[in-house]
């Protein structure tokens, strides 16, 4: 008896989710093209965490690389989900807005510079509360300014997901790429359960969470652009595609009428079935990625 040895695809692929933020970021840039800005050795840390007995991180959980993607100028900003759940603080927020603003300036001066955001975040860092909320508002403003000149591509890989105010920032980007393991939503299930009760959302119901917030659903219902495997090469290929694509015709967050009508058509007398919603919203015309 003979048997050929077949190596399954999942063994050959390079997991992206297993990488830390820095390695994720590096894997998406053109090799040799990039340089890290305001990195760990610049040691600009959160001044607020040590005041509350919490160890800071030398990059405040935000990695910024400048270089090229698909041969085009790009800046990549990655949040580290393992540090304070990727939450936004004064410093990480300032790094993100500064990088976006500099990309806008370069774009205005003729050097169109795309931005890629790797968002693994629960939103505001509660230990920096009001400064966290303020920097998210500033990140949103900076995304909107750059988005007029060059694409802003959000990648949500997992496993933290993208929640809170940063989900609004994701909603403002030109394109959203998600893995099957990624989740995207404004309020996490625990928050809804706490605020509105377990009958509204049972946060222990994992199947329900994936059915609502998961990558397959978000892409399937047309509020995100592409579903990718947890594979560094596949994610890089997707990001390159959107860098090359340039600006979408109408950014999704300006398609107000379409979504206002869809909301008006919802039966709100009971909970909305995610699969039914996916089918009724899934129309090609809604894909922000299509030109």
């Amino acid at each position: 008896m003979s048997s050929a040895i077949v190596i399954p695809a999942y063994v050959r692929r390079h997991s992206f989710i297993e990488l830390d933020a820095r390695a994720r970021a590096q894997s998406l840039m053109d090799p040799g093209s990039w340089r890290e800005l305001v990195g760990p050795f610049d040691r600009i840390e959160s001044p607020w965490l040590p005041m509350q007995g919490i160890a800071p991180q030398s990059d405040d959980g935000c990695v910024v690389l400048k270089g090229t993607i698909a041969g085009k100028p790009a800046v990549l900003i990655a949040l580290e989900g393992k540090f304070q759940a990727g939450s936004m603080g004064e410093v990480s927020g300032a790094k993100m807005t500064a990088a976006l603003d500099l990309a806008t300036q370069d774009s205005q001066n003729g050097k169109k510079t795309a931005a890629v955001l790797l968002l693994e975040t629960g939103g505001v860092r509660l230990q920096e509360a009001n400064l966290g909320l303020a920097v998210i508002a500033e990140v949103m403003a900076s995304i909107l300014a750059l988005r007029e000149h060059a694409p802003v591509i959000t990648v949500i890989a997992g496993t933290v997901g993208c929640f809170g105010g940063m989900s609004i920032a994701a909603g403002l980007s030109s394109y959203i790429v998600m893995t099957v393991e990624a989740r995207l939503g404004l309020n996490g299930p625990e928050v809804i359960e706490q605020e509105s009760g377990i009958e509204e959302f049972d946060s222990s119901d994992k199947a329900l969470i994936w059915a609502i917030n998961g990558g397959e659903q978000r892409v399937g219902m047309g509020v995100a652009d592409e579903l990718v495997l947890d594979d560094a090469e596949k994610i890089a290929a997707s990001v390159q595609k959107y860098v090359r694509a340039g600006l979408p015709q109408v950014p999704r967050s300006q398609q107000v009428e379409l979504y206002r009508e869809r909301t008006a058509a919802l039966d709100t007398s009971r909970q909305i079935d995610p699969l039914t919603l996916r089918k009724s919203w899934n129309r090609k015309t809604n894909q922000g990625g299509a030109r």
């Binding site: 990195g39 760990p40 050795f41 040691r43 160890a55 800071p56 991180q57 030398s58 540090f83």
Partner: peptide, 18 residues
């Protein structure tokens, strides 16, 4: 040379060596 490894996540640490 210098090196940076690790993340300040629960049960972990970062080290900067230079």
């Amino acid at each position: 040379k210098r090196a940076h490894v690790g993340v300040v996540g629960s049960g972990d640490m970062e080290v900067l060596m230079q």
